[in-house]
Computed example of a mutant assay.
Amino acid sequence: MTDTRIRLAVPEDAASIAAMAVALTEEISQRLGVKTFNLDQQKTASLCHALLREEKYLALIAIAEGEAIGFVGISEGRALYAEGALATMQEFFVAPPFRTNGVGGQLLNAAAELARKRRWNRLEVCTPPLPEYDRSLAFYERHGFEITGGRKLKRLFTEAQ
């Protein structure tokens, strides 16, 4: 296991988080063979900085040897089915060289601890499409997540709409 520190991200971490978010979305697009995302790293960093500063988005960041090697981005919400507060892990990324070193598990444990501290009733995650990401699904299940059904859908809105 890598000597890794997990901490709550601050706005100054935005550039590192944006770089990892771009790497995550590019990896998903490459594996699926479809350009699903189109993140601009500079715009993403600016948005991340603003959302972290306004506390409208939370992130846990993994640091090893002074470098950001992973993160989990979290949005808080409310839902009747969740009986109140819940959180969704919107992004989850660990740099490839660290994926078998326990860093992902450390991030999930830190997210679970944050959920308990914030009194969220549940912590949710949506995996990219299966079967391409069946290993991700198995990883989440090993860490206490269970399938709740459904698929993630999207509807995009532009300024013209």
Rank of each mutant, 00 (worst) to 15 (best):
E76R: 13
A160C: 08
P128C: 03
R122W: 12
Q42M: 09
R99Q: 14
E76N: 10
L58M: 01
R7K: 15
A160V: 10
R119W: 03
A68Y: 06
E124G: 07
E12H: 13
A15I: 04
E26C: 09
E83R: 15
V125L: 03
L108N: 06
A23Y: 02
Q30D: 08
Y140A: 05
P129V: 02
I6H: 09
K43E: 06
E76D: 07
P96V: 14
A18M: 06
G149V: 07
Y140K: 12
N101R: 14
V125C: 04
F71L: 05
E83W: 13
F92V: 05
L86T: 00
A64C: 14
L130Y: 01
M1G: 04
A160K: 14
I74D: 01
R142Y: 00
A45Q: 05
N121A: 09
K56T: 03
V125T: 05
N101A: 11
T127I: 00
M89N: 06
I6K: 11
E83G: 14
L51D: 11
N109C: 12
E76K: 11
A59V: 04
T158C: 10
T158G: 11
Q106Y: 00
N109V: 13
G73H: 02
K56R: 04
L107M: 13
Q106I: 00
G77A: 10
L24G: 10
E12W: 13
T44C: 04
E124Y: 01
L47V: 14
E124A: 08
Y57V: 07
F98G: 06
I17T: 08
R135G: 10
G33N: 06
F139Q: 01
L80V: 07
E83N: 13
A85Q: 09
S29W: 01
P131V: 05
M1Y: 01
R31W: 02
R122A: 14
G66I: 15
A23Q: 09
S29L: 02
D134G: 07
R116N: 10
V34G: 05
I61L: 14
L114Y: 00
E65C: 11
S136T: 14
Y140Q: 07
G105K: 04
F37Q: 07
L52R: 05
A79F: 12
E159T: 08
N121F: 03
N101S: 14
P131N: 03
